[in-house]
């Protein structure tokens, strides 16, 4: 398993992503600068980490989505290669058109930074095959613009085709308004593309890989990539 982490100006979770990948695959990922035009040969999975690329100028992820390396990421995805976008990486993938929808300002106007329960909705994809169907996991969230929105038709497709990967829920797995931290449509915390080789999610699985920092619920995601 060869992994690459893309580094944009203003990324700040690349170290966490690299640590999770190294733990799961046994080797450090390549760190690729946004102005590069190519991914390393035989890259299996590309990770777009969290942070505030370009200071969130214009719209979150908008400028990073047009960086030179994103053409190579799009080609990689078109070939069926795996792409994972976490938090700001999710915003970038939506802005790049590699995922449906858009992330808007949290409906409650607050930056949320806390542990959050999620229900794993679809375990048929490479990214989520390490989880049980409907499993409730606890990841960390830290974002001000994680309110997932899509037009009705897109949302219907997402729901109809099982593209919702994770939903915000309470500790018992109940998906309701009270457990929705940012106003996302249908409590969607993460989505797949139509081919299920691209995943974006606002929560941070890469921060839940060690009991020392709150749990290991994020490990199965990265271990599934290495398997």
């Amino acid at each position: 398993m060869k992994a690459a982490v893309i580094l944009f100006p203003g990324s700040n979770r690349e170290g966490d992503a690299a640590r999770a990948l190294r733990q799961a695959t046994g080797q450090p990922p390549a760190m690729i600068w946004h102005a590069d035009h190519d991914l390393p040969n035989r890259t299996d999975v590309v990770v777009l980490p969290g942070g505030f690329s370009y200071g969130d100028y214009l719209r979150c992820g908008a400028i990073a989505a047009r960086a030179p390396i994103m053409r190579a990421v799009a080609s990689h995805a078109a070939r069926g290669g795996l792409v994972l976008g976490i938090c700001n990486g999710f915003q970038i993938l939506c802005e790049a058109g590699l995922l449906p929808g858009v992330l808007m300002r949290n409906a409650n106007r607050q930056f949320v930074c806390k542990f959050q329960h999620l229900r794993v909705e679809n375990v048929g994809a490479t990214f989520t095959r390490g989880y049980a169907p409907g499993q409730v996991v606890r990841f960390a969230i830290a974002h001000g613009e994680g309110n997932f929105e899509a037009d009705d038709e897109t949302l219907k497709t997402i729901e109809g085709d099982g593209q919702a990967a994770f939903r915000y829920c309470n500790a018992d797995g109940r998906v309701d308004e009270a457990s929705n931290p940012n106003g996302s449509e249908n409590n969607i915390a993460g989505v797949f593309n139509s081919r299920f080789n691209v995943l974006g999610l606002m929560p941070h699985p890469e921060n839940l890989i060690d009991p020392l920092t709150g749990g290991v619920d994020g490990r199965p995601l990265f271990e599934a990539l290495a398997a």
């Binding site: 808007m104 300002r105 949290n106 409906a107 409650n108 106007r109 309110n147 929105e149 106003g183």
Partner: peptide, 9 residues
Amino acid sequence: GVLDPQGKA
């Protein structure tokens, strides 16, 4: 119809 929290604030 798109929610605008900043406008509301």
